[in-house]
Design a protein around this nucleic acid. Structure first.
Lengths: 204, 204
DNA sequence: ACGCTGACCAGACACGGCGTATGGTCGGGC
DNA sequence: GCCCGACCATACGCCGTGTCTGGTCAGCGT
C-alpha cells in the first residue's frame, strides 16, 4: 500500500495541496460543515500528514486568510497615500475592497463567521481590522492637518473610534454582500452606500 | 428514583427552567462551548424532556433572542415617531440600544456569533435587522418630506441601502462593545461614534 | 380504592467528528 | 546497500448529538 497517487509531487507541497483543497471546498460548503476528513480526502492526504503540518482546520483557514488579506493592504494604499481629492481615491479604494472580497469571498466569509469561536483566528482578524483602522487614521490625520474644513468637521471627534467603526462597517457590508443578503448583493449599491458613509462621516 | 427535586413546580414551567438556565450559562461561557448536557444539568431537566420541548440548543437560543429583542422595537420608537429635532431623539435611541445590548449582552452576542451556521437563526436575525431597517426607512422618508435640506442631501441616495447599512453598523459596534473590543468597550465612545455616523449620513 | 394517562426521569444507544498513536512503505542521500 | 525522513492506512479513546427504552410519579375519573 501507501502508493504515491501523484508519483513525483515535490515534498512539502503537500501543505499546498491542503490549502488549495480547503479553498476549493469553501466555494461550495461553509467552513463549519467541513470536517477534517472532507479536507484530507479532497487534498489526497493522510490524516497523520494533515496533523503534522496543521494544528487543525482553523490553522489552515488562518493561513488562507493571511494570504488573501496581504493583497488588501495594497488595495487601500492609493487612498492612504494620495494627497489630493480624497473622494475619488476613497471610492476607488472601496471598490478595490469589493473586488478583493469578491475574489476571496469564500475564505473571508469563513473567517468572519469563525473568528469569534477560536482564539487564534480572533487575534488574527482583530489584528487585521486594526491594520486597516491604523491606515485610516493616518490618512484622516493627514487630511486634518492639510484641510481646515476637515479639521473643523472632526473637532471633538474621536478619530480612532471613527476610523475603527468605518473599518468594521466595511467588514460587515462586504460580508453581507458575500452572503448575498440584499441590498448589498448589488455591487454598485454596496460601493455607493459605503462611499456615502465614509464621505459624509469625514469630508462633507 | 425520579423524585421531583422541586416538588410542586408547575408543569410546563420546565421550559422556562431551560430558558433561564441557558441565559445564565451564557453569562459565563460562549454558546458554541455549551453542550446540551451542560444546559440540562443547569436546568435540572432530563435529556428526554429537553428534546421534547426544543429541537436543540439553537431553538432555545432562538426563543431567548425573540424575547430580548421585543424590547428593542420600543427602544427605537421615540426616534421613529418624534416629529422634531431628530439629532437628540436619535442619540437617545442609540443610547437606548446600548442599554438594551448591555442588558442582554450574552444572548445577543450568542446569536450574532451563531446565525450564520443555522438556517432558523439566520432567518430570525435577518428578519430582525430588516425590522429595524424598515423603521429607519420610515423615519428617513418622513424627514425627507418635511425637511428640504434632508431631501437635498439624500438626493440620488438609495435610502433602503443606507438604512440597512446604518442598522448593520449598529449591530456590529454594539457587538464589539459586548465583546469588550476597544475602543467600543467605552460606552460613551460607542454612542458618540455611532451618533456621529448616523447624523452625518442623514442630516449634516 | 383502583387503574389509567401524561409528564417526567435515568440510562443506554448508534453515529460521527476530533486528535493521537501505531506500524509500515517508499524515495533519495550517503 | 542502507538508513532516514516523508508519507500512508488504520484504529483508538474521547466527547457531543439526538433517539429510544423502561420506569416512577401525580392527579383524576369512576
Amino acid at each position: 500500500m501507501a502508493r504515491r497517487d501523484e508519483p513525483q509531487q515535490s515534498r512539502a507541497e503537500l501543505r499546498e495541496r491542503v490549502l488549495t483543497a480547503l479553498r476549493e471546498l469553501l466555494r461550495e460548503r461553509t467552513f463549519d460543515t467541513l470536517s477534517v476528513a472532507d479536507i484530507i480526502t479532497a487534498a489526497g492526504v493522510s490524516r497523520a500528514s494533515f496533523y503534522f503540518y496543521f494544528a487543525g482546520k482553523q490553522a489552515v483557514l488562518a493561513e488562507l486568510v493571511r494570504r488573501a488579506v496581504g493583497a488588501g493592504h495594497e488595495a487601500a494604499q492609493p487612498w492612504v497615500q494620495a494627497a489630493a481629492d480624497p473622494r475619488e481615491t476613497l471610492r476607488a479604494g472601496i471598490d478595490a475592497g469589493a473586488e478583493l472580497w469578491l475574489a476571496n469571498a469564500a475564505v473571508l466569509r469563513a473567517i468572519v463567521e469563525t473568528w469569534a469561536s477560536d482564539p487564534q483566528l480572533r487575534e488574527l482578524w482583530l489584528a487585521q481590522m486594526e491594520t486597516f483602522t491604523d491606515a485610516t487614521i493616518t490618512r484622516i490625520e493627514a487630511d486634518r492637518r492639510a484641510n481646515p474644513a476637515v479639521a473643523a468637521r472632526l473637532d471633538g471627534v474621536d478619530v480612532q473610534a471613527l476610523a475603527a467603526s468605518l473599518t468594521w462597517t466595511g467588514e460587515r457590508l462586504y460580508y453581507l454582500a458575500a452572503c448575498g443578503v440584499p441590498p448589498f448583493d448589488d455591487r454598485a449599491v454596496l460601493v455607493d452606500t459605503l462611499t456615502h458613509l465614509w464621505v459624509s462621516a469625514l469630508y462633507d
